[in-house]
Computed example of a mutant assay.
Amino acid sequence: MSRAANTGVAILGSGIFAKEAHLPALKALGSLAPNLKAVYSRSEKSARELADEAVELLHYWPDIYHDGDPAVNLDALLARPDVSIVIVVLPITLQPSIVLKALAAGKHVISEKPVAPDVASGLKLIATYEAGYKPKGLVWRVAENWEVEPGYTTAAQAIRAGRIGKVTLFSLRNVGSIDKESKWYKTPWRTVPDYQGGFLLDGGVHSAAALRVILPSPLAYLSGFASLNVEWLAPHDTLISIIKCADGSHGIFELSFAAPTQSRSSIGDGIVITGTDGYLTVNQTKVKDPVTGDEKSVFRVIIKSIIRNADGKEGPEREEVIDEAVRGVEVELASFFAAVVEGKDDGLGSPRGALRDVAMIEASLNSGGQLIDLEKLVTPA
């Protein structure tokens, strides 16, 4: 795919992730990405800051739109015929209305996770898209970068190829430490969240997506508990759930942003999937680039397989280590642009898939130890 002459992209939202993830991904994609024609933020200052970053990385100046002047507000941006794609990187509670506004203006949309603040509003949003905009050929995807991270998809492929046999049990642990000095906490809309779970929803859907992608069977039932341990991370900062998949395998989902120190964050984190013929682990780590000497982040997949001889007896254990660079945002944008420009639908970024991630967090927050049917939760009444 190369840039289509009449295909331009705009970024709606000028926060940390727009600057540190989406702009670098557009740069990495080069000619595979449409030109960034415009940026929008509620304030002129923040929009201009994003535009400055774009100039530095992409070497061209996007037009600036903001709410301070009706002549250059969001409606004016969405009226531009040379902008056919928008990337929505806005606060969680704002995104659904902006997604619909962009679709109504005839734009293709990729919106940052989560798909919606809760399952009920997610179901309504998806129903509106599928009934009114999908039939018109408009593409809407949810940008869940962990869904497409090569480390996780490599692990999924190994399991489906039978490398560890039939999955029997699994665990995911993601424990972090968010203090008041964190750049993520200082984001104003996160400081006083008006959506369920706080950081558990905002960051937790990543972990839910990783399990959804790696495990060969859908998550079916869940029972869990949630708690608040650090007052500034209200309403909740920790959850632990027991999960059963449709194929009978089961596991533990442990998520917290309330570790007392950063060093606690590094203990035991990662994913472990155990099967009848081995197991695999997935952890994020840093390695030295052999060319530049710089450190880069990778997902390290370690596959431990039992080798059986001709009569089925167990032989030595075989180990394979695979490092995959962290580049989920680049992959998801490349896939989305290919869907828009070339009509290639690889199934990634499905709003219904992203809804399952919200359902997993919502069920964990509300369970109180009661069993919740996850399939029923995401099925319209």
Rank of each mutant, 00 (worst) to 15 (best):
V230M: 11
D277L: 15
R173D: 08
A143M: 14
V86L: 05
L200A: 01
V213K: 05
K124E: 15
V86D: 00
A104S: 14
P235Q: 09
S263D: 14
K186N: 12
A210R: 09
D269M: 06
A155T: 03
G293S: 07
S111R: 04
A209H: 08
Q157K: 13
A339S: 12
A234F: 13
E44V: 07
V109L: 04
L26F: 13
L219Q: 01
A28I: 09
L32S: 15
R264C: 12
A127H: 11
I322G: 01
F299C: 06
K45Q: 14
S14Q: 04
S182V: 02
L255R: 03
T191F: 10
R173G: 06
E317A: 12
E330F: 02
F337Q: 03
T261C: 05
S31M: 12
F337G: 00
A25E: 02
I240S: 11
Y133P: 00
E330T: 13
E362M: 02
S177T: 09
V213S: 08
S46W: 03
L78N: 05
A21F: 15
A47M: 06
I267Y: 11
L90C: 09
P150D: 10
D52R: 08
A116Q: 03
L78P: 00
V358C: 04
A10N: 02
L123V: 14
A102W: 01
T238A: 11
A116V: 04
A338E: 11
V331E: 09
T276Y: 05
A79W: 06
R48Y: 12
K45C: 10
I306Q: 15
I178C: 00
I271V: 12
P260A: 05
L100R: 05
G328V: 03
K107V: 09
R3L: 15
S367F: 09
A51Q: 09
K313F: 12
D311P: 07
D63N: 12
A259I: 03
K113Y: 01
V301W: 02
P117Y: 04
K37S: 11
S265N: 10
W189M: 10
K344D: 12
G275A: 06
R356M: 11
I98Q: 01
K107F: 07
S217E: 10
P150L: 08
D346A: 13
L123A: 08
R3K: 13
D373S: 08
L77G: 02
S227F: 06
N283M: 14
I110Y: 00
V358T: 07
A54E: 01
L36H: 06
N283S: 13
T168V: 13
A28W: 08
L36D: 03
